[in-house]
């Protein structure tokens, strides 16, 4: 009787042990799979960096540092320099940010302080939907609707106004092509606006209500509360959002490719066609013949990668800081 019971218990223990072992094994497998996937994310970024370096090695070893300082881009004589695309990328992104930041902050103030409550969510969603529209849509709209509009109305008007004023006249020198650096900057501004707006709105929401209320309590106007309390409190977060928008603008490809004009030269006029790093790669990569040409384009990609990596890292660092403060 006892012997039978003992046998039953020991077999129960055995199946129990086997089950626990099986559980431990599957758990280990699952854990390993998740860990491997997490590491794969690192491997992808590492792979991107390595492939860009090896792909651009030929161009970089031939041209060396002068690749960064040469304006020439001549596929026939195989003489390549990155200065014109870098110039175009930096100028268009900078103008886009200068336009988009005040408007973005304005919309965020509107949404957090002024907007009637029932409209808040729909408008917030509408602005965020702008962020979801693929860049090629902005490109086709820019090429067929926005550029002709600029060409026929805005640009001749500006050229006339600034005609004869030193400095400004060369900045806005004709002929009005419609496409060019300024058009690209405006399209980029529209594209980064939703990013800046939604991040600014999010960080505005982290301001403790008691801070704002005490400012209102001593008689501050809405603008004074925004200017003296909300913006100083969220400065780091806003900067993070601006940097994120900048990273976006620097790497934006399709919208710019449509309206930049793809001309490898540096001109003082914002109305002149130019090129950016991403537009050059998009336009020329599939047509590039010869190792050196392809390699030079990959080298452009490497430069863009390094620039955006630095900008995005700064952005994330700043947003992390405001996150930890909001959590504390």
């Amino acid at each position: 009787m006892t012997a039978v019971a003992e046998a039953a218990t020991s077999s129960a223990t055995r199946t129990r042990e086997a089950t626990v072992r099986r559980f431990a094994f599957t758990d280990m497998v699952f854990r390993g799979a998740t860990r491997a996937s997490a590491i794969l994310v690192l491997v992808i970024l590492g792979g991107v960096a390595i492939s860009l370096v090896t792909g651009s090695w030929e161009a970089l070893s031939k041209f060396g540092f002068s690749f960064l300082t040469t304006e020439a881009w001549n596929p026939v004589t195989e003489n390549f320099g990155a200065l014109a695309p870098i110039y175009g990328t930096v100028v268009t992104s900078a103008i886009a940010i200068i336009i988009a930041v005040p408007i973005g902050i304005g919309i965020a103030v509107f949404l957090t302080e002024l907007c009637p409550r029932p409209l808040r969510r729909p408008i917030g969603i509408a602005v965020e939907l702008l962020a979801g529209i693929p860049s090629i849509i902005y490109g086709i709209w820019g090429l067929f609707v926005f550029a002709p509009f600029l060409q026929t109305t805005i640009q001749p008007f500006i050229i006339n106004i600034f005609h004869g004023i030193p400095g400004l006249s060369s900045l806005f020198a004709g002929p009005p092509y419609g496409i060019g650096l300024l058009t690209s900057s405006l399209i980029l501004a529209i594209m980064v606006l939703p990013f800046i707006t939604s991040i600014t709105k999010d960080v505005f929401d982290t301001v403790p209500a008691v801070l704002k209320e005490s400012a209102y309590g001593i008689g501050c106007t809405t603008w004074e509360v925004t200017r003296r309390v909300v913006i100083p409190y969220t400065r780091v977060g806003i900067m993070g959002g601006v940097m994120l928008g900048l990273g976006r603008a620097l790497g934006e490809t399709m919208a710019v490719t449509f309206v930049i004009g793809n001309a490898h030269r540096i001109s003082a006029s914002l109305f002149a066609p130019g090129t950016t790093i991403s537009a050059t790669i998009a336009n020329e990569f599939t047509e590039a013949d010869g190792e050196l040409y392809t390699s030079s384009l990959v080298a452009l990609g490497l430069i863009l990668f390094i620039i955006t990596l630095i900008i995005l890292a700064i952005a994330r660092y700043m947003l992390l800081r405001i996150d930890s403060r909001a959590g504390a």
């Binding site: 490809t253 790669i281 863009l304 955006t308 890292a313 994330r316």
Partner: peptide
């Protein structure tokens, strides 16, 4: 991974194209 992932999230997509090309 979180930091790198956030960077990948906003990295220019044309760079990914170059990577897969290579």
């Amino acid at each position: 991974v979180r930091f790198i992932n956030d960077i990948l999230l906003s990295a220019p997509s044309i760079i990914v194209g170059l990577f897969v090309y290579e």
